[in-house]
Nucleic acid binder design. Sequence first.
DNA 1: GTGTTTACAAACATACACGTATGTATCTAA
DNA 2: TTAGATACATACGTGTATGTTTGTAAACAC
Lengths: 210, 210
Amino acid sequence: MARRTKEQAAETREQLLDAAERVFHAKGVARATLDDIARDAGMTRGAIYWHFKNKTDIFTAMCDRVTLPMQAMLDAQLADPGEDPLGQLASDGARILSLVASDPRTLRVFEIILFKTELSEVVAEVMAEEAERAATCRNQLATILRAAQQKGQIPAHVDCYLAAFALNGYLIGCIREWLELREFDLAQRAEWLMQTFYMGLRHAPPLDAA
Amino acid sequence: MARRTKEQAAETREQLLDAAERVFHAKGVARATLDDIARDAGMTRGAIYWHFKNKTDIFTAMCDRVTLPMQAMLDAQLADPGEDPLGQLASDGARILSLVASDPRTLRVFEIILFKTELSEVVAEVMAEEAERAATCRNQLATILRAAQQKGQIPAHVDCYLAAFALNGYLIGCIREWLELREFDLAQRAEWLMQTFYMGLRHAPPLDAA
DNA sequence: GTGTTTACAAACATACACGTATGTATCTAA
DNA sequence: TTAGATACATACGTGTATGTTTGTAAACAC
């Protein structure tokens, strides 16, 4: 095969990632073959081994393409809490839900991560950094919630870290359920789903109520 | 190998399922080998192929061992809504969360299902029946929520099917998050988590608020 | 007590996915 | 203009999982 220009090479790299999305989505990550991906992109495994180290490498590159922009979004939100932290957080969550529903790439990759990826001790490295990322996210959410608490939007007795945990679970859980279902327009219901959850936080009982 | 009594054979079947739990949990379903499972149980693949048709068969048998009792629990709850449907539902959810936290088998299998199983077009049959099971569960939840609505526990404008969707997502999401985290005692916080969510339902805004 | 079936173990045949090594045509820089 | 680097394609060796077949000793029926 002929050598190609830098731009063309970058293009094929993107095409390979696109193909990885399709193949991982169709067959699951473990069952997907590097040959499957290469053929889907109209190339051979040689191209893959040139651009990526192995299957794990192409997988993380594929995930980064959609998660990095989202993380940036959260960072920006954290940098400027604003006057209505809880309301901001609610519309942010709604925006994420809408994004999943509207952007095909985000949709596919979320489906892959939530349904078509097996975490095991074998891929411990990937798990470790993912766990760290999730912990950071939870802490950021907790920080924002504490800001909301200081403004009186949440009762003082609420454990904001636990609330961040619940919020994170709720978001992921809603996405997961909707991906399975697809019956209604998620973007349309997103605001209600988030508002309802925050109403729960506003009226949360004290911890020892259990 | 010698022939064994019926009881002994049933015992080895259980041992194989126990081994499948451990191996699936450790390596993920796709990466787990039938030989891995057999060796873990102190046998050979011959035993597996005697008791089960293939890997999918042993996987579903393993899942059924923990999901069937839980489904029975929900059925009983549906048969008798009681005087306080919402409160009952809350304590039921808390019970499920506590079960995940306290019963090792439930814990392992949930982890396998949520994190170590790749759904793909290849296992479409399994997916189809799982989707049907989930739909039934959602409908049952919606029915119970409507009963709560008629007793005035939930505002009349709430779409109970959407609420059931959110509840289901919340439960699964909380389990998922906790499995990743394991920082606190889930059984202790379960009641608060459920109560907080139901407080959101009680104070849910009208749908067109978005 | 004998024959048959059961409950596995052991051996085999097939297939497939991975990594790597090697080939090669083009681009680029000096 | 040419030497080397680049961007892939092709080919090969190896490991490994799967399904099946065959072997076999004990349980059970009669």
